[in-house]
Design a protein around this nucleic acid. Structure first.
Lengths: 346, 346
DNA sequence: GCGCGTTACTAACGCGAGTTAGTCTCGACC
DNA sequence: GGTCGAGACTAACTCGCGTTAGTAACGCGC
């Protein structure tokens, strides 16, 4: 009773229904291109149900030559991932896209240092890979792309000829700054979301610079501090920023880092948005509930996952795929950026 | 060039090394029980490397009868998952445990309404399953357990004979309350982390009641409000709690909900911890950085995943497994609970 | 009665590896 | 010189399913 009965195979179903294995296979896979009388069809279905038949996955995969599985490789460190509050949504979106096509998702969280993932693809355990947060020096990834494996990059690697998805970091950041500039701020600091060898950090900083330039405001390197994913980095980052001269507003390119930055401002006794306005990035679920509610750039996490999934499935199926897909962001104005009236003009 | 060359098979390796497929298989799988002279061994390894040979996953799985994959079924809704800030760590821990044994992790996020996951196991696409946040009415799960499939439950289902892992919610909550009581509080409210058909919510509430009882404080149903995973529920929950009579302290059984609760207290103009002390649960990464830094019960998210993984692998391997594993929590005292001196005695 | 389509199937091969039950060689020992 | 036994392999079967090529049965027209 504790031991499972041996699995029924398609041969058992065939025997029970009084047909051949081939016919069973046709029915199970719902092939409409073969003619099978409804009576036979039903007999097979019934036999399968009675026996509790489920096709053996690995056997199908071997015969059909497809694993019906896609992989998600997360190249971030454990700490970085723990701080990423949008992961769940992205994963959900990816899985939803996969399931719609009968695919499953295999996740491979892999710190930069540990291990390899190319084997997943080379051993055909997955039919394609979404690589999130690739590092520039990831040769393994370059090799996979070169060998023509279906890979979608979430983030960016300019040197690789693989389709990539990302939010429009640059435009998002630019929008955040235009908002601050519109409120009359001219001396605006920036704490990045991550060290500057991460492309997303560079792009968001790029949006910051674009906006300053368009507004005719000079770029001051002293107003830019590198954050590093977590709130602690925002905390110390803000302290450092304040030491270098006080801005009237700060764009923090990550909500989590921004929460640390807000703490830094409290430490310094500077009211937000009274003395310093703050705008974040990501729109994590709690952004609306911190003190003060955070003005931020909404990142469509779930759509990001869905899009990555769809692109990868298209690529696997051999359909044409755009080389770069950028998802739009949206500025969500809450209290932390104040209003034109609470701040004076320039 | 864009087309991948056809994969080398073990037969190709055998031909190149001048041996049979069987020998190749022995070498690749590192079987120490067969005698193969070092010279031959090296020839095979070299041939495999030169050809870029990787065993075909599905074929191995078919022949060996094991998929070397475990599944993680997340039974929470999309919103609930988005609010769960510990997911990434748990997943990381699970994947780490799996990888140590040569297993991979397949994730299946499944809204309560949508779809079925038993097929994963029945079709042998996975060798075992970790089911997170199972609902009481999940018959599919009950059937799998009854049929003897390797399943580990993360959370609790008292009626099922399957090993389960969880943090010691009850003890954790009790510790939080003892801390508050020790500070002199006697009128202590509670906002649960989730609706009370979730066992974790019931357990944490149980710890709250235990502590009150031990301290000889009467239980007042009016001081208990149901939260629902997200900060918004904490926000409205706190407002409701304050309407029913003001406690001097509140135990909020989830940090995310607590952040909403803190907002509710701000709305009411009540300083924390001056007028009302707050203790959370989970110790999410930003708990230390909100205003005020949150006293909370640390939940070892990564260890939770690791433990679930190890238990499942033990179960798959047929090793004995304890039926219930509880991980200890730890109270992290920060500012939101104040000190005995800031509050007067009873 | 034969030829010729359809219709409704089935026999048999192949996917790529793991594994069992041998086979063959070579040396030692009697 | 024959026998035994290890050592070093290999032939061939197996896993469960997808699929191609082929066939048996039936109807129909002449």
């Amino acid at each position: 009773m504790s031991e499972r009965p041996s699995r029924p195979t398609s041969a058992d179903v065939a025997a029970r229904a009084g047909v051949s294995r081939t016919t069973v296979s046709f029915v199970i896979n719902g092939r409409s291109d073969v003619q099978i009388p409804p009576a036979t069809w039903r007999r097979v279905e019934e036999a399968a149900r009675e026996l509790g038949y489920h096709p053996h996955g690995p056997a199908s995969q071997l015969a059909a030559g497809a694993s019906l599985t896609i992989g998600l490789v997360m190249r971030q460190s454990a700490e970085q991932l723990a701080a990423d509050m949008n992961l769940a949504s992205t994963l959900w979106g990816l899985a939803a896209a996969a399931r719609a096509d009968g695919y499953r998702v295999l996740v491979e969280p892999l710190a930069p240092a540990d291990g390899t993932y190319a084997g997943l693809l080379r051993s055909r355990r997955v039919d394609g890979l979404v690589v999130s947060g690739p590092r520039d020096d990831d040769d393994e990834l370059a090799a996979l792309v070169r060998d023509g494996f279906p890979v979608v990059i979430q983030g960016w690697r300019a040197d690789l000829d693989a389709p990539s998805v990302d939010v429009d970091n640059r435009a998002g950041a630019r929008g955040a700054l235009e908002h601050l500039i519109g409120l009359g701020h001219r001396r605006i600091g920036c704490i990045t979301n991550a060290p500057l060898h991460y492309t997303a950090a560079v792009e968001r900083l790029g949006g910051y610079r674009d906006a300053l330039e368009s507004a005719g405001i000079g770029y001051e390197p002293g107003l830019v501090i590198e954050g590093a994913f977590d709130a602690a980095s925002g905390h110390v980052g803000m302290a450092e920023l304040l030491r270098h001269g006080r801005p009237t507003a700060v764009f923090v390119a990550s909500d989590v880092v921004a929460i640390g930055a807000l703490r830094g401002l409290r430490d310094a006794g500077l009211p937000v948005p009274g003395d310093v306005a703050v705008v974040g990035f990501d729109d994590i679920p709690i952004a609306a509930h911190v003190d003060p509610p955070l003005t931020t750039v909404h990142l469509p996490a779930r759509a990001l996952g869905e899009t990555a999934g769809r692109l990868l499935l298209d690529r696997i199926a051999g359909r044409p795929v755009p080389s770069r897909t950028l998802l739009p962001t949206e500025l969500i104005v809450r209290d932390s950026s104040g209003s034109p009236r609470t701040r004076g003009g320039p």
